[in-house]
Design a protein around this nucleic acid. Structure first.
Lengths: 366, 366
DNA sequence: ACCCTCTTCTTCATCGATGAAGCCCGCCCG
DNA sequence: CGGGCGGGCTTCATCGATGAAGAAGAGGGT
């Protein structure tokens, strides 16, 4: 049997007990300046006596048109998010914006099933949504736009794509992934590497068959971040006179060490063997380092490995990577959304800075 | 100006356009078995054409009496929670329960101000609440109970306290803190240590003046976890014939390395100098290790340090600690709450297991 | 031919509050 | 002494949906 808890009682009941109108009781709780202090005290005392806990937030929210919470929808469900330090940092940032504003943070449940992802967004009781790392064609995006939910976007989809979907102008926060990726690749090329390989996380929201993918597939990625980073690597490679078609690109699923390890195995099995691995995230790079160790390859002597993000773990691993202000991205997106909701002008879409951080996992080509 | 987004439209508008009753449109979305497939298709098509995004979740929630989200209220605001790996693990656990159930997870904003904490709980739009590590007299607890919100509690308050507050029977998840603490202390005593000291995090929700605290203050802690762990240390100490009054107990605020460092400094300055430090968390222990290093004390040669939790970082630090299933605590609490909401019998309150993990930060007394 | 049961849709009441506007009265001012 | 003003409360309509119960017609059994 469902827990049969006592019904909390309503505004009208308190009103009847005090002998005033319901509106006055409402004001006693929400707008103290609208009634005399004496009456207010009388109302509150009666409410206490009756065990009335204050206006039902749901009903108030319906009437007011706002509920005091913003949502976060993340491409890869919650379970995954909490395992990835970069995702946690992003959430921490959003929370840092929401909390001082007194706003709750609703984590929208994810699912492998697009229909459930869509439903989760349709049913989310929020005033606005921070959308992070969502594929260009993800139905959850369409659902959010259809609801007319104010949005703030982190990383992807890109602003142009959002506009194409008919979304109202939404703040966007991210870095210049293409340029940043080009910078890491250039770093390796400068070190004399000629045989590069790439280990990438998901390019799209559909089920993924891990393996090497060709240029056409790369360009067709619906995940803009993936697409742009690959394009950045390519920019640098071609500037150095390298034929991109000769560069093995492994496409795995999630951004996890396990996928990174599998990806490294796959590209290291190609001939000629790459001397440098470009990984799209530090977690992938972590796995790649494991694969190298398992194969007895010294890093950076036999193999250079570069990551992306500068996650908390990167320094400990000596990982060369791109530092991006993950927490700040979350904070900025959260703040922009709250500004939007408050009718304050939302900040412009300035890409945040990213910088190459060289450590010991990369060195001269042998 | 507030973003003037288009109003999404209502059920009745769709109903009028199709020429059926509002209830039928409602059924088309929520109860497909209640109308013919043909009509349902017609309704959905019209809804699409009008840009109607489906029933307003807020209104539906009001009428139905449930909104499809559970809340998490945490003693120390969100910003802090995301910085503490143990808190993140707990959240990960709750999320792991909520997500497959399709339930959202609302993080209730915290605040140093009790009134705001209370308001945050009063205003939370949720079906139930997971309450974690909240002081016995925290107003947020009273607010949750007054609302009649179904609750699941992690760690504290203890079940007896909840009952005393008049809460309906609520599932409780935790470990036997007193026994676990006694086990670590016994470990150090077995190693021959006679001069113990304790570094503790908060004992109550009021503003804290860091410093040493006496037995009376210890027993008066409104944080049951703190109280019980201290009692456990004491149990072991007294069994070993040590006068508890001679054991310096430092009381800091948050469970952070900085507090741990300050606490270690404080207790190491007492005479005779302690040879073993009992820290109430691994994060505190982390700071204690830093303090030891700064003072040139070798661990465990000159000083043994023990933590609590077995956080992810503990193994790397070689920290002797108590392992408790943090993530599982979150999962169990989340699941118990969802069971409660679904009218399924909630599981009994079996304390989860905890075990001593000895590593290199503790050794024989010199 | 009659009664019963389903399916399919409708009507009615209700979930619990709040914005906008209005009314009444006392007070200040010219 | 009349008019304007603001404080303090009330009235009215409404936010957007869904549960419960019921009506109309279709089919099935006897």
């Amino acid at each position: 049997m469902p827990a049969d808890r006592p019904r909390p009682g309503t505004l009208q009941e308190v009103a009847a007990a005090v002998g005033v109108s319901a509106k006055t009781v409402s004001n006693a709780f929400s707008r103290p300046d609208q009634l005399s202090a004496a009456l207010r005290e009388r109302v509150l005392a009666t409410a206490r006596r009756l065990g009335y806990p204050g206006p039902n937030p749901l009903a108030a929210g319906l009437r007011r048109g706002r509920v005091g919470a913003i949502g976060v929808a993340y491409d890869n469900g919650l379970s995954y998010a909490f395992d990835d330090p970069v995702a946690v940092a992003l959430l921490a940032g959003v929370a840092a914006a929401a909390e001082p504003a007194g706003s709750g943070l609703l984590l929208v449940p994810g699912s492998a099933d697009p229909a459930r992802r869509l439903a989760a967004v349709s049913d989310a009781v929020v005033d606005g949504l921070v959308v992070s790392s969502v594929g260009d064609d993800d139905p959850l995006l369409a659902a959010a736009i259809a609801r007319g939910l104010p949005l703030a976007v982190v990383d992807q989809p890109r602003p142009d794509r959002l506009a194409a979907l008919g979304a109202a102008a939404a703040p966007w926060v991210g870095i210049d992934d293409r340029a940043a990726a080009a910078a890491v690749a250039a770093h390796l090329l400068d070190l004399g590497h000629r045989r590069l390989a790439v280990v990438s996380f998901g390019m799209h929201g559909d089920p993924i068959v891990p393996g090497l993918v060709d240029e056409r597939a790369q360009a067709a990625a619906t995940y803009a971040v993936t697409r742009d980073r690959l394009a950045g690597y390519r920019d640098a490679a071609e500037r150095a006179g390298i034929d991109w078609a000769s560069v093995p690109v492994f496409h795995g699923g999630d951004s996890t060490p396990a996928v990174g390890e599998a990806g490294a195995d796959a590209v290291l099995a190609t001939d000629p063997r790459p001397t440098a691995l470009l990984c799209l995230s530090d977690r992938l790079a972590e796995g790649a380092l494991r694969a190298a160790e398992r194969r007895g390859l010294r890093v950076p002597g036999d193999l250079s490995v570069a990551g992306f993000d500068d996650a908390a773990t990167a320094a400990g691993l000596g990982l060369t990577t791109v530092r991006q202000p993950t927490r700040e991205k979350g904070r900025a997106a959260g703040q922009a959304l709250l500004d939007l909701l408050a009718g304050r002008p939302a900040p412009p879409r300035t890409p945040l800075p990213a910088e190459l951080v060289t450590r010991t996992s990369t060195g001269p080509a042998s």
